[in-house]
């Protein structure tokens, strides 16, 4: 079972202030910390689990700047065999379709049975790259996948629907699955493995190697702005003791 996992390095914005930069189209990134996208971490773990069970290889692919190599190295430390970073000045402005086209050109000639992506990138929140890539590669796919059982070239897939309902279906390999969080328990790499991965080579591919003249954008961010707020909470002010007293009174009187 040879598996390709698409990994995106994203800023952690859940805990941090997100500010718009001077172009008005992007965010200020220099004070943010970056890490592997949450659902990609589960996709990577699923690939490693499948490899441990069925044999084969795990190749991880990321489109992004040199800093992505930290993320890819961590993937190698956890058990991926090969890492590919795709980068080019011509790829600075992209969209979901462009990313899928770029990844396709990098993996189309590889020998694989399965492609895994995350189900959503927490920065753009598009849930687009997986299904787009599958269509470009002409393989079947499913998103929000919460269980994978491989059986003689057919995968029994669990897909999460609204309200906690699960849909079960069979998909023929080769296929692409966009993995939902919670499918497994992502591992941590050991210090020794991290040290060993530091010496591994990461293949870097550019537009030239991929035979891409320029990326065709289908959508473009025109501007970023703060969401208009219909209603904002009344913020209770004071020390923890003061706000707790106020809130306790509100709670017990409502």
């Amino acid at each position: 079972m040879n598996i390709i996992v698409c990994i995106k390095r994203v800023p952690d914005t859940a805990d941090a202030a997100v500010n718009i930069d001077s172009s008005g189209k992007d965010i200020v990134k220099d004070r943010l910390t970056f890490d592997i996208n949450e659902s990609d971490n589960y996709a990577l773990e699923e690939a490693i689990l499948l490899k441990e069970k069925l044999g084969g290889t795990v190749t991880i692919v990321s489109v992004g700047p040199p800093e992505c190599e930290d993320t890819l190295r961590m993937g190698l430390a956890k058990g991926a065999d090969t890492a590919i970073r795709i980068t080019d000045e011509r790829f600075t402005e992209t969209d979901g379709f462009a990313i899928a086209e770029i990844i396709k050109s990098a993996i189309k000639d590889l020998d694989f049975d399965l492609v895994l992506t995350g189900c959503i990138a927490t920065d753009d929140g598009a849930s687009q790259v997986g299904p787009t890539l599958a269509e470009l590669m002409d393989i079947p796919h499913a998103t929000l996948v919460t269980k994978i059982d491989v059986n003689n070239g057919v995968v029994r897939v669990h897909k999460e629907l609204e309200g906690g309902l699960t849909e079960v279906f069979d998909i023929k390999l080769p296929a692409l699955f966009a993995i939902q969080t919670g499918i497994n328990e992502p591992r941590y790499a050991s210090l020794i493995a991290i040290r060993r991965a530091a010496a591994k080579e990461i293949k870097v591919l550019g537009a030239g190697e991929l035979g891409i003249e320029e990326v065709s954008l289908k959508t473009k961010v025109e501007s970023l702005f703060r969401p208009p707020v219909a209603k904002h909470a009344e913020i209770l002010q004071g020390t923890p003791d003061e706000v707790s007293t106020k809130l306790a009174q509100i709670l017990l009187s409502s």
Binding site: D123, G125, T219, K220, V221, E222, P227, P228
Partner: peptide, 10 residues
């Protein structure tokens, strides 16, 4: 994008 922290016109 960014889990509801910003809006984007596209």
């Amino acid at each position: 994008p960014y889990n509801g922290k910003l809006n984007a016109k596209v």
